[in-house]
Amino acid sequence: MNHTTPDLPCACPGCTCQVSDAARHERDGKAYCSQACADLHPQGQACPSAECHCESNVRVQDRAVSDSQLDEAIEETFPASDPISP
Score class of each variant (00 low, 15 high):
residue 83 P to E: 11
residue 64 A to C: 15
residue 32 Y to L: 07
residue 36 A to Q: 05
residue 86 P to W: 02
residue 2 N to T: 11
residue 8 L to M: 07
residue 22 A to P: 11
residue 45 Q to Y: 02
residue 55 E to T: 09
residue 6 P to W: 01
residue 11 A to T: 06
residue 55 E to G: 09
residue 20 S to N: 10
residue 58 V to S: 08
residue 71 D to A: 13
residue 33 C to D: 04
residue 84 I to K: 09
residue 48 P to T: 05
residue 32 Y to F: 10
residue 20 S to M: 13
residue 47 C to K: 01
residue 49 S to Q: 11
residue 84 I to A: 13
residue 53 H to G: 14
residue 77 T to K: 08
residue 26 E to P: 01
residue 17 C to P: 07
residue 32 Y to V: 02
residue 11 A to G: 11
residue 75 E to P: 00
residue 24 R to E: 09
residue 31 A to T: 00
residue 52 C to P: 03
residue 9 P to L: 06
residue 30 K to N: 08
residue 29 G to D: 10
residue 50 A to L: 14
residue 1 M to Y: 06
residue 80 A to Q: 05
residue 57 N to I: 07
residue 51 E to P: 02
residue 5 T to A: 07
residue 46 A to P: 04
residue 32 Y to T: 02
residue 41 H to T: 11
residue 77 T to N: 00
residue 48 P to Q: 08
residue 67 D to Y: 10
residue 41 H to S: 10
residue 25 H to L: 05
residue 48 P to V: 09
residue 51 E to H: 04
residue 15 C to L: 12
residue 81 S to I: 02
residue 83 P to N: 05
residue 9 P to G: 00
residue 24 R to W: 01
residue 82 D to I: 01
residue 71 D to I: 11
residue 17 C to Y: 01
residue 33 C to R: 01
residue 8 L to Y: 00
residue 31 A to N: 07
residue 21 D to N: 11
residue 36 A to E: 04
residue 73 A to T: 00
residue 42 P to F: 08
residue 66 S to E: 11
residue 43 Q to K: 14
residue 27 R to A: 13
residue 81 S to H: 07
residue 54 C to Y: 03
residue 5 T to Y: 03
residue 3 H to D: 04
residue 72 E to M: 01
residue 79 P to G: 05
residue 74 I to D: 03
residue 38 A to M: 02
residue 22 A to T: 13
residue 78 F to I: 06
residue 30 K to S: 10
residue 75 E to G: 02
residue 47 C to R: 01
residue 27 R to D: 14
residue 39 D to P: 03
residue 51 E to F: 01
residue 56 S to G: 14
residue 35 Q to T: 05
residue 22 A to G: 13
residue 86 P to T: 07
residue 47 C to Q: 03
residue 74 I to A: 09
residue 70 L to N: 05
residue 72 E to T: 05
residue 48 P to A: 12
residue 27 R to E: 15
residue 6 P to N: 09
residue 36 A to D: 04
residue 27 R to M: 08
residue 37 C to D: 06
residue 63 R to T: 15
residue 24 R to S: 07
residue 59 R to G: 14
residue 55 E to L: 07
residue 6 P to E: 09
residue 34 S to C: 10
residue 11 A to F: 06
residue 23 A to E: 10
residue 51 E to N: 12
residue 39 D to M: 08
residue 14 G to Q: 13
residue 47 C to G: 06
residue 9 P to I: 00
residue 76 E to C: 09
residue 9 P to K: 14
residue 38 A to W: 00
residue 47 C to M: 11
residue 36 A to R: 01
residue 59 R to N: 15
residue 3 H to G: 08
residue 43 Q to W: 07
residue 69 Q to N: 03
residue 12 C to P: 10
residue 71 D to R: 15
residue 57 N to Q: 15
residue 76 E to I: 02
residue 1 M to P: 12
residue 78 F to K: 12
residue 83 P to Y: 05
residue 47 C to I: 04
residue 21 D to M: 10
residue 48 P to M: 12
residue 18 Q to K: 14
residue 8 L to C: 05
residue 10 C to H: 00
